[in-house]
């Protein structure tokens, strides 16, 4: 093994008295003493959450206020800790959701199991499940820590939709019915 001898300079007299270094250190700490605090006073001041943050998984509605989830259960199957439990349900033909075939009757995410990996968001073909900026989950019981469907929509809100997939499909169907190409 090659050895590189490093020449050590002997300390000067000033260095051996420690004093210049101590004065320098005192200057540094005094600068910090008068500088503003770097901490946040947490419950009153909240940190700014950066984009792409993986917080609590939530369900979102589309810009028309309809629920996006079609209950395909891909997220349930992909979820590594098996935190998601979906009960699929039928949709009545006169419902505003009738553009899709199914919707979740119940959608539970057990936040005691969730590992915030984001695979559910990645796998969702409808972009219905999003890990948003909510980072603080508390509860006194295990039951409280399970987010049910209504809670998931409350946390999720509505996100802007880039695709308007179902609107486009409906427009295409209408066009076909009126003698279009399809």
């Amino acid at each position: 093994m090659p050895v590189i001898p490093v020449e050590r300079k002997p300390l000067t007299l000033a260095e051996r008295t420690y004093l210049p270094q101590i004065v320098h250190g005192l200057k540094t700490t005094f600068r910090h003493l008068v500088a503003p605090n770097v901490t946040l006073e947490y419950p009153e001041q909240r940190p700014e959450i950066p984009g792409g943050y993986r917080g609590v998984p939530t369900l979102v509605r589309d810009p028309n206020g309809r629920e996006k989830c079609v209950s395909c259960q891909l997220c349930e199957f992909v979820c590594p800790p098996k935190a998601i439990r979906i009960t699929p349900g039928e949709i009545a033909p006169d419902s505003p959701q009738a553009h899709v075939e199914r919707a979740p009757q119940a959608f539970d995410i057990d936040m005691l199991r969730c590992i915030y990996c984001g695979l559910c968001q990645e796998v969702c073909p409808e972009e219905a499940i999003w890990l948003q900026t909510q980072y603080s989950m508390t509860g006194y019981t295990r039951e409280e820590m399970v987010n049910h469907k209504d809670r998931l929509y409350e946390l999720g809100g509505t996100l802007p939709d880039a695709h308007h997939k179902w609107d486009k499909k409906k427009a295409a169907e209408n066009a076909a019915a009126h003698g279009g190409h399809h």
Binding site: T29, H32, L33, A35, P36, N37, V38, T39, E41
Partner: peptide, 13 residues
């Protein structure tokens, strides 16, 4: 308090 201020914290408040 002084230790807190030097470390950029508010200290007990």
């Amino acid at each position: 308090k002084i230790s807190a201020w030097i470390q950029g914290r508010p200290g007990p408040n």
